[in-house]
Design a protein around this nucleic acid. Sequence first.
RNA 1: GGCGAGGUAGCAAAGUGGUAAUGCACUGGUCUGCAAAACCGGUAUGCGCGGGUUCAAUUCCCGCCCUCGCCUCCA
Length: 470
Amino acid sequence: MPLTLHDTLSRQPKTILPMDGQTLRFYCCGPTVYGPAHIGNFRTFVAQDVFRRVVEKGGTPTRHIRNLTDVDDKTIRDSQKAGKSLSEFTRFWTEKFHADCLSLNLLAPHVEPSAVAHLPHQIRMIETLIERGHAYAAADGSVYFKVASYADYGRLSHLEDRELKLGASSSAGAVDHDEYEKDSLADFALWKARRPDDGPNYWPSPWGEGRPGWHLECSAMALEYLGEDFDVHSGGIDLIFPHHENEIAQSCCSTHGHFARHWFHVTHLMVDGGKMSKSLGNLYTLADLEKRGYSAAEVRYVLISGHYRAPLNFTFHSLDAARQALQKLAKFDKALQERGCPALPATQSLSPGPFAEAWQVLNDDLNVPGALGAIFATLNKTKPASLSLDEALAVHSGLHFMLESLGLKLPVPSQDLATDVPAEIADLAERRWQAKNAKDWPTADSLRKELESLGWLIKDSKDSYQILPK
RNA sequence: GGCGAGGUAGCAAAGUGGUAAUGCACUGGUCUGCAAAACCGGUAUGCGCGGGUUCAAUUCCCGCCCUCGCCUCCA
C-alpha cells in the first residue's frame, strides 16, 4: 500500500516512493539551539517522525537528516548574554533538545549535522554561486544571492512578483540597516560580514571574516548527506518563505540537481485558539507540561491527534483526553495479555492484521486522526476474552504494528500502578473494609469520604479492595 | 493588499454526492449496601452564512462572513 502525501510545490497528493528505488532520503529543518524547544516546534518534529515510521513500516528504509542551527543572530546574542562560548551554549541546548526528543519517542535522524561543523561546505557553495553569476560580494564583505538571476524563484511560495509587492508588506519599512549593501531588497545573505556585536563568533572566508547566512546551511548539508537530488524536504509551514524558497534557489543554482522532489510542510500548533507566544503566556515546553503532571507520551498523542495540514488547537483538556485514550489502549492491551499474548510482540510487527483499515487511512496523506478513529472502532468491536489464542495474537500484533507506526508507547494501566500507600491511609482503608464487612455502612462511607479527601480512592472487588491515588 | 490553510456535537477531531468515524466530557443500564472501577448502551435531522447545480449536498459551483499562518531570517 503506497503512502501518499500532499506536496506543497505541486499542491497535489503524490505517492511517496524512493527515487533511487531503495532508500527514501529526506531532510528536515531542525531547531535553532538557543533555548528549550516548545511543543509547537515539536508538532513538526513529531509529524516528521510519524512520516518516517510509516515509510519504514511500509517496507522502505529511510535516510533521515535533520540539522542543528548552532550559529545565527539568536545563538550569538544569547550565548554572549549568558557569558558562555557559542559552542558551550549551543551544546547545552542541543542536549536539552535531545532529551526532549527521547521523551517524545522520536527516532534519531541518521545524521544530525551542525552548521558550524560545515563551514567549508557552505563556503564552497558560495564560491560556486559567485562563479556562476548567482551571487555577489558587497563592499563590506557580505555575500548576497541575486534573486533576479533565478527565474524560478517564488514557485514554492507562489510569490512570483515579490519585489513589486514589497510595498504592501507591513514590514517593508523595516529594511535592515545592515543590509543596505544589497543590490535588491529581495536578495538574501549567503555570508554575513563580521560585526562588532558578533564577539568572538566569526570565521575566515575568501570575502573576509564573518559567518554563514541561515538559509545556506540546509542547502549545503542536504547536498553533503543526500546529494543534489533527494526525495523529501520538510519543515514547519512558516519556513516555506523565505527559507525553503531560498534553499531551492541556492541549491538549484549551485548544482544541476532538482533538489527536493517533494515538499512536506506541517501546519502550526495553536494554543487556546490562538498563536502561541511568550507574551500571551501560552508558550509551553515539554518541561512545563511535565511539571503539571503530564507525560511526554500524552503530549505526543495530542500533537498527532490532528491532521498535520490542519491547525491543531492545544488545550489542557486535550491532554486529559489523551491520557484517557492511552489508558483505553493500555487496558485493551492488558486484556490481550491476560488472554495469553506476550507483553510485546516477539519481533517487530509486520502487518496491521485486523487494523488494516487504520493502516490504510494512515497511508492516505498521514491521516493520523482518521487512523486513531479506526483503531478505536476495531477496539470497540473486539472482545479479547472471547478470542482464541491465535486470534488474540493477531489482534495484538496488529495493534502494536499501528502503535509502532504512530510512535505511541502504552502507559501502565492506572490500576496496575504500584504506589506506596502511607501506613495511615492503609489503616483507614482497612478499618473501612472491616466496617463494610460488618455492614456498618455509615462508618464505611465516612471513612471512604475521608480517604477521598486525602486523595485516595477505594476500588472494591469481591474479596479484597485496592487503594489508588486519586 | 497578495498568497496559503481552516470553520463539523460541550471540548478535540475524521469523513462522505445518498443522509455524520473516533477520543474526552455528559448521560442511561449491568454490577455494587451505595459508590468507584469495569462492561453494555445513548447523545449533531446537523456539518460558518446565502444562493445555485442535482432525484439527492455537510460533501460540487458561486458569493459573503469569521479564524489562523506567511509576505526577509519564527517549527
